[in-house]
Design a protein around this nucleic acid. Sequence first.
DNA 1: GTAGTCATGTAAGAGGTTACATGATTAG
DNA 2: CTAATCATGTAACCTCTTACATGACTAC
Lengths: 210, 210
Amino acid sequence: MSLRHALLGVIKDTPLTGYDLVRHFQGTVGFLWSAPQSQIYPELRRMESEGLIKAKVAPRGKKAQKRIYSITDAGMLELRRWATDFMPLPAQRDPIVLKAAFFDLAPIEAVREQLRAHIAQFQWRMEQWQAREDAIRERRAELVEVWLSRQPVEEHEHIIKLKIHALEGLIGRAHAEICWARQGLALCDEIEEQRALAQLQNGKAASAGG
Amino acid sequence: MSLRHALLGVIKDTPLTGYDLVRHFQGTVGFLWSAPQSQIYPELRRMESEGLIKAKVAPRGKKAQKRIYSITDAGMLELRRWATDFMPLPAQRDPIVLKAAFFDLAPIEAVREQLRAHIAQFQWRMEQWQAREDAIRERRAELVEVWLSRQPVEEHEHIIKLKIHALEGLIGRAHAEICWARQGLALCDEIEEQRALAQLQNGKAASAGG
DNA sequence: GTAGTCATGTAAGAGGTTACATGATTAG
DNA sequence: CTAATCATGTAACCTCTTACATGACTAC
């Protein structure tokens, strides 16, 4: 149930509407845990019914309303419990690696395309993570600052370093992914070269034999 | 639908029963894509009904029977299609990293425990992957050899190199994960030291002031 | 006979994806 | 008035998890 805790992790800093949370899930926390809008609204309702968050209904214009959620003591407790409890590694399940193990079934140009996209995707993500890291380090990350303002000053640096460490994990992983894909591209070149060479020698042998 | 293709990827080499596949999913392919037994049997039935595999019912002892599945032309085609088609990156969703972003909410000893387990888990996986890689390279991987025996000899090295490349991706990632967790442990030490130092200075200030 | 392995399932529920659906409000 | 944004949902479907369930066969 990580979505729940990702949501709590944002709401703990400041009260937000479901809509705000949806946006944040494409911005800040979304880099850590992506979730579609259709998952967030029902989850907020469930969390409310379980007392982890509470909603304040606020008017919006003349007729419309919105629900501004804030964390409860029970929610904060649950978040701390989750952060503290041991969590086993999720099962190994990566569709790209699985596919890579069967790349010999695909034309080499399709393999290249997949690997190039892999690089591009991770480079894009890496930039996002890097930007987020910079924002946190330079004290420009709004919600983090709100949270820090409620923590003892001597802990601020520790909190920041831990948050940066989490992002460093993603960046390091992205780096590994990019290296891997580049090696894959090199392997594609090597394979194609050897095929061309074999073709050439085949031709020679044929003309020599014929 | 990666489970389906993981299954096809094994069945393509040699006919197998559901039971055999379950075991393989803790051995060879399971390092790439883990799946519980309760998912494999129904999926095989579905694949059979869709004509991707066909079952040969064989007797087992006197009364019992077993279903030996083998791949059909349609199944082989589907596997090649899947290997060729472009596949977008799965959404970012890693519970451990998410948790790491909120490590400041947990007691430092709990953080250490999580990180130590992280290292141990990935070291274990890494050994499995490494062993698998060695087996493939040294031509001791049974099913891979069955597959190779039906491929042109001049392609053998390419196929092996591609399969090893897939495993190298996992190994590289595991390496990154271990590095990250070690840095986390170092950070824990640092934080604890600084806390102890602050405690000490607080004590001094208190005794000087009081 | 009995323990271990071979063999095959079902079922409830959690979590995630994709698409659809609606309506108020605000900025131009 | 019209388009973009704010705001909140529902529904069908798929995948995966966890647990339960059964029975034949084989080696001791």
